[in-house]
Amino acid sequence: MNTITKAQIKGLQLEPNKAIDMKEIFFHLLFLSSAMVGVLSVCTIGWFVFNEGLPAISEAGVVEFITGKEWLPPALYGILPMIVASIISTTGAVIIGVPIAILTAVFLAEIAPKWLADIVRPAVELLAGIPSVVYGFFGLVIIVPAIETLFNIPAGNTILAGIIVLAIMILPTVITISETSIRALPPIYKEGALALGASHIYSVCKVLIPAAKSGILTAVALGVARAIGETMAIIMVMGNAPAMPGSLLEPARTLTANIAMEMSYATGVHASALYATGIVLLAFIVLLNGSLLYLNRKRAY
C-alpha cells in the first residue's frame, strides 16, 4: 500500500522533470555538435591533405622532398627553397611587426589620451578588414618600386617586399589581442607598482607587459599564423621564383604561393606534390600551436 503511494508521488514528481530533461539533452547535443564542427573540419582537412599528398611524398621520398633544392615538375620535387622563404618572410614580419604592434597596444591601453585612442583604434581595426589582394596591390605599386629605388636593384619583387607587407598585415591581429590582454589585467598591478614609486613607463614595461605575457604570446602566435598562411599578397609582391633565395633582395616563393600558383593546372604527381606542400605547411602550424601551448603552460595570472 505504502509503496504504491510512493510510486504515485514519484511519478507525479518526475513528470515535469522529464520535459526538462529533453530540453537539457537537446541543448547539450546542440552545443556538442557546434563544438564538433571545428574538430571535424580539422580532421577532414587533415585526412584529405594527407590522402592527396602522400603519393607524391612516397614517390619523391620524404628527405628528397623536404631537402631538395630544385622544383622541376614532373621530374624533381624539392621544396626546401619554399620552406626557407616561408620561414624567412614570417620571421622578418614578426621582427618588424610585433614590436610595433606591442608598442601600439601599450599606447592604446595605457598612454594615449581618449580622443587619440579613438582615432588610432578604428584605424587599426580597419586595417584588419582590408582584403589581402588590396595589400598585395599596395605592395606592388608602392613598396616594390620603393625598394627598387632605395636599393638600386632591377626588380623590387623580393623577400623584403613580402616581409614589409606581412608586417603590416599582422599588425591588427597582434595589436587588438595584446591591447585586450593588457586591459584585462586587474588594476591592482598598476596601482601597486605606482604606489611603490615606479614611474608610469617603468610600471608598464616591468609589470604590465610581463603580466600580460600569455595574451601577448597568443597574439604573436596568431600573427605568425596569419603571416605563414598569407597567399595572395605574397604572390603579388615576392616574385615567386622557385630558386633558393641568396639574400633578402631576391625573389622567392613561399609554400602557400607554390600551392596557389600551380594548383589550377597541375595533374597527377604534380598535384599530389602540391598537397604534400600543404602537409608541410600543416606541420608548421601544428608546431607553432604546440610551442604556444608549451610557452603558455603556466598562466601569468
Partner: peptide, 27 residues
C-alpha cells in the same frame, strides 16, 4: 627521363596574363 623547363629558376613567376602585364608595365 622527364621533360622539364629550361627557364632559369631565378625568373620571377606571375600567375596569369594580367599579373605578367602588371609586372612588365611597372618595371
Amino acid at each position: 627521363g622527364h621533360k622539364v623547363t629550361a627557364i632559369t629558376p631565378t625568373a620571377q613567376v606571375g600567375n596569369g596574363n594580367g599579373m605578367i602585364k602588371t609586372i612588365v608595365a611597372n618595371n
